[in-house]
Amino acid sequence: MRYEAPESLEGAVALLAGATGEARVLAGGTDLLVQMRADIVDPELIVDIKKIAETRAVTEEQGGWRIGAAVTGAELKEHARLKQAWPGVVEAANLIGSTQVQGRATLGGNLCNGSPAADSVPALIAAGAVATLAGPQGKRDLPVEDVMLGPRKLALRKGEILVSFLLPPRPPRSSDAYLRFIPRTEMDIAVVGAGVSVTIDGAGTITAARVSLGAVAARVLLVPEAARAIVGSRLDAAAQQRLETAARAACQPIDDKRGTTEFRIDVAGVLTRRAALIALDRARAN
């Protein structure tokens, strides 16, 4: 097994594109090294992307934020201004694993691992984040909801790397929130995850919303019907009810010992409503 740690995107793309056997990007390794140890993957080449500056930076861009794919959860937590603009994205990233895992785990790895239960993904989708990819044909942008196609299946082509995420500019009175249900209080995989982002006008009416659900289908879902259920409302009881119903209608969950189908569908409605209320509260304070 070969290990390379190129300092440029071009170098990393060339290595991945030229690989004859299985090649893997290494970010924090909190999924990859576990899977290698369990013989689930056995790459011939590992390309560590952490020396590539673009993957490690958090910068303001066009009034929004660009977050490098290899920035760790611990680093996001310390970024006060990012947290102010996107508290839901940061709190979702910070739910991943323990303090030790936070020291390594990245947003790029969370998405590219291809798990429908990945915690940061619903928050990124609710935020309207766009993923910037670099490959042999150059760069391209893809909305985060189009990156994961199914469990372990990604839209990335051979040789492509996820470089960064762009979070759009925030209008005044906007905010977001992410909630998940796990049977324990820490260190567990989401049974349901719900991300909600809202913008309100001066009167408190929701003018824009995005809702995303994790762990209730083969991929993390963007749920436009749930967003439509609350736009134009002030999230009164009737709107909350419509939101719950729309969120539940989008679910096609698995049935296992951690959560039955019925339970996951029910909880998806509850968490979506609660996340929307938190996002709304935060938006009022902005």
Binding site: Y3, G28, K50, A74, S98, G103, R104
Partner: peptide
């Protein structure tokens, strides 16, 4: 990565040394 018995500091960050490659 589950138990923390291998915890070390890497550039001032707490990490599990079982989830870091030596060559990193």
């Amino acid at each position: 990565g589950d138990c923390g018995a291998c915890s070390v500091m890497l550039d001032g960050r707490l990490v599990c040394s079982c989830l870091v490659l030596g060559c990193e």
